[in-house]
Design a protein around this nucleic acid. Structure first.
Lengths: 254, 254
DNA sequence: AGGCGATTTCCACTGAGTGGAAGGCTTTCC
DNA sequence: GGAAAGCCTTCCACTCAGTGGAAATCGCCT
């Protein structure tokens, strides 16, 4: 007996499933990819071959595959990411100089936050997450800053999806989340203490573009020991203001 | 009469052709995409729809498509780009502080150079190229630095592809290219004056990784007026050395 | 040498993908 | 104001590109 009828996914979906297998940024063997994409090995073999022929995936000397330059080139030119990064870089750099901790620029992507850029000082806290990984909105400073200014339906979806607990301090109750977001809207600063990473806290502020809409957030992550030092909220606010201005935002009454 | 026989490209090739339409980082209408990818409109419509469903492309309010966050997330985690960027960032920053001009980190991709990162001063020269665009090896400082240390077959291919002239000063003769590359190998510094951009020159130095292989190059681009100032070669060399060390390179005899 | 896991090739079968055409919607121009 | 020009979406009869189980091959470890 041999092959026959089609599967239940289109070619495109299979290609994308293969791409998704690389979401973690790792190098994978063909078998790994087939397992993650839930595809037969022979199908994976052919499709991965096509990715590689194009240059989206490349094969290392040891036979493993990884994301190639072609995909990198395509991705870095994403207009939003590029515009925000260009506007923010100098301010992130100043913020880094001033604090020596991790400084980030993040945007909301669906029901998560993604770091667009990170700059880190020498002695900054150990951190897991990296540029390009998706983190939960309710358990990060940038997440709270962005969620506070997101359309109501995003809030509803986040609550509906469930407020996962990562550490004892994570916000898991809807009323508390609501209260915290109101506070963020009031003060213009979001703080998240040991909600996702043990021993770390983060302070974030929203960034607006020329239309006045909140499009990103800046944050600092530092060791809880430094919690309460006023320079963090101050620095983050100044950076956010600078980036907003660089994006063409003019505060109301100008 | 209605649709029928298959085209001459596989589904994957068509999807990639669509992706390539976005290589310039622009926003495109469906018709634009179909034209660039040389596909029938109805086919383009369906395939672009699949890209968008996955999140690789997104549709703006005005109906145009652009590269989406999903592709950005996949691309930024390209292992080589990430590793080099992380190692290089602080040195590029220092170099920017020291000179106030455009500073770059670049790698070779096939027969071209790609800027992995760029940091620019306030008053730097006007420049066309951006992070993610491919530039010719023979007409840029970084290109010469990388070509000087690339496998012989790359050199042969570059020569075979033809040394395109962009400005009067571009290297277009094989003997001259050979001579210049030998010079680069001797001095450890590559200089390219008004070869691609009018009024600008660039000074570059190769970066090595733990295996001793040249994997990237650092460069400064400034106005020809400043040609001859010794700080550029000096700064670029120091930065390249620092990045190499951060990548695990140990100079021979250690 | 032999076994195990990963990779590559083979091939009979079929429905997923194809693309020309027609219809709708919006903008521009006379 | 009408019609011409673009752009986008939907429809559908036709067919070959894609499928995936199985078998062959490779490469490493014991």
């Amino acid at each position: 007996m041999s092959g026959g009828g089609r599967g239940d996914r289109s070619v495109a979906e299979k290609l994308f499933a293969i791409a998704d297998a690389f979401a973690g940024g790792e190098e994978l063997t063909l078998t790994d990819i087939a397992r993650r994409a839930r595809l037969p090995l022979s199908t994976t073999h052919r499709l991965v071959g096509q990715w590689a022929e194009w240059g989206g995936l490349v094969r290392a000397d040891d036979g493993r595959y990884r994301v190639g330059m072609r995909l990198w080139r395509l991705g870095v030119r994403q207009p939003t990411a590029m515009r925000l990064r260009n506007a923010a870089m100098p301010y992130l750099e100043d913020l880094l100089d001033a604090t020596g901790e991790h400084v980030h620029l993040a945007v909301r992507d669906g029901l998560g936050v993604v770091y667009l850029e990170r700059r880190s000082g020498e002695h900054a806290v150990a951190m897991v997450s990296d540029v390009g990984t998706v983190l939960p909105l309710h358990a990060t400073g940038v997440g709270l800053a962005l969620l506070a200014h997101a359309p109501g339906e995003v809030y509803d979806d986040v609550v509906a999806a469930g407020l996962t607990r990562f550490l004892p301090n994570t916000i898991t109750e809807e009323p508390e989340l609501r209260r915290r977001l109101a506070e963020v809207r009031g003060t213009g600063i979001a703080t998240s203490v040991q909600a996702l990473t043990r021993g770390a806290f983060s302070v974030a502020a929203p960034v607006r573009d020329a239309t006045g809409e909140v499009v990103a957030a800046v944050s600092i992550i530092a060791h809880v020991e430094r919690l309460g030092e006023p320079q963090f909220a101050l620095g983050v606010r100044i950076a956010a203001r600078g980036i907003s201005a660089a994006l063409g935002y003019r505060p109301p009454g100008t």
